[in-house]
Design a protein around this nucleic acid. Structure first.
Lengths: 169, 169
DNA sequence: GGTGAAATAGTTTTTAT
DNA sequence: ATAAAAACTATTTCACC
C-alpha cells in the first residue's frame, strides 16, 4: 500500500466524499461507498485504489476499546532532551520507535521536544519504560508523565471539509 | 455498532489473533481473516460480530495522509483550568467536544488538566480556536501550545499480546 | 463452538460509451 | 473518465457434527 510520488495529490469533490465516508467507516463495502457518493461500483473502486497508490489513504484500522478487555494505563510523557544535535534526535527517535507499548510519538516545538504516548499493562511497566528512556537512552533532560484519566473526545478523523476549502475542484 | 453490557469481555486466543489482524488491516476480508487465524469463514465472522456487539471493536477507520492533500497545522494544547469543580470540567469538555478541528482530547492527571489535539487549516485558525477557549469558555488558567513538527511514530494500535498476558484463556 | 455447502451479495475485470 | 455486464470471490445462513 505504498507507491508515493512525493508530490501533492489533486482530489475532486467525489474523492473528498469518499475519504469522509471511509474515515467514518473503513469497513463499508465498495458498493455502499459507491451508492453514498453517487457513483457506480467500478469507478468508485478505482478512485479508492488511486488514493491508496498515491499515499493519500495509508491504511485501515480497527478501533478497540481496550478497557473492555484488560486493565491498562495510558500515559503521555513530555520529553526534553539535554542536547539538540541531529544525532541526539535520531537516537531518541529510534529508541522510541523500537519501544514496546509506545503507541504514538510526535516531535513538537517549544520547551518540550517530544510527546510520547504509552499504553502499558500497569504503572510498574510504565516506570520501567520511562526509566529506560531516562537512564539508558540519549541524554534526556526532563521527562514529565501525565496519566490519562479519561478520553474526552476520541479521535474520529479530520474535518476534511473545513481543511480543504481552497484547493478542491 | 453498540450493544454494551457494561461488563468485561472474555476473549480467547483466537479472538486476540482476530483483533491483532484487524488492528493491522481493518479492511481485510473475512475470508483472509479466517485463514490467518485458522478458522473457517463463518465462525470467524460470528466472533467479529460478537466483539462488535460487546463493544470490544468500536469501529473501523481509514488513515489519511493529510499532508498529501492540503497544508495544515497540527497543535497540541496543554490546558489547565482555574477552577476544578465538576461543572468546570463539564463545561470545558462540552466546549471541546463541539469544537471543529479538535481531533482528540484527553483529561490527564498532574498540573495539566487536558491535552487537546487540533488539526487546523493554518495558524490563524488555531489562534481563533485557542482564543475561544481562553476568552469565551470556562475559566482557563493556562493554555500552552505545542506545534507538532513531525510524527515520529504514527499510531499503529496496541501491543495486545503484551497487554493481555494474564487474562487470556 | 466448529464445519461445509448453498444462496445471496460484493468485488473486480473487461468491454463499450 | 464513467458505466454496465460478466466472471470471480466473499459473506452469510443453515443443517449437521
Amino acid at each position: 500500500m505504498k507507491d508515493n510520488d512525493g508530490g501533492a495529490v489533486a482530489l475532486d469533490r467525489i474523492d473528498l466524499k469518499i475519504l469522509e465516508r471511509l474515515q467514518a467507516n473503513g469497513r463499508m463495502t465498495n458498493q455502499e461507498l459507491a451508492d453514498a457518493v453517487g457513483l457506480s461500483a467500478s469507478p468508485c473502486l478505482s478512485r479508492v485504489r488511486r488514493m491508496e497508490r498515491a499515499g493519500v489513504i495509508t491504511g485501515y484500522n480497527t478501533q478497540i476499546a481496550l478497557s473492555r478487555i484488560c486493565r491498562h494505563v495510558d500515559v503521555v510523557a513530555a520529553v526534553t532532551l539535554k542536547a539538540h544535535g541531529p544525532e541526539d534526535f535520531e537516537l531518541f527517535e529510534n529508541m522510541v520507535i523500537a519501544m514496546r507499548f509506545v503507541t504514538e510519538c510526535t516531535k513538537v516545538s517549544g520547551p518540550i521536544d517530544y510527546l510520547v504516548h504509552f499504553v502499558c499493562p500497569d504503572i510498574s511497566a510504565y516506570q520501567m519504560l520511562s526509566d529506560e528512556l531516562l537512564l539508558m537512552g540519549p541524554k534526556v533532560g526532563n521527562l514529565s508523565s501525565y496519566i490519562v484519566l479519561k478520553t474526552v473526545k476520541p479521535n474520529q478523523g479530520f474535518a476534511l471539509d473545513g481543511l480543504l476549502e481552497q484547493p478542491v475542484r
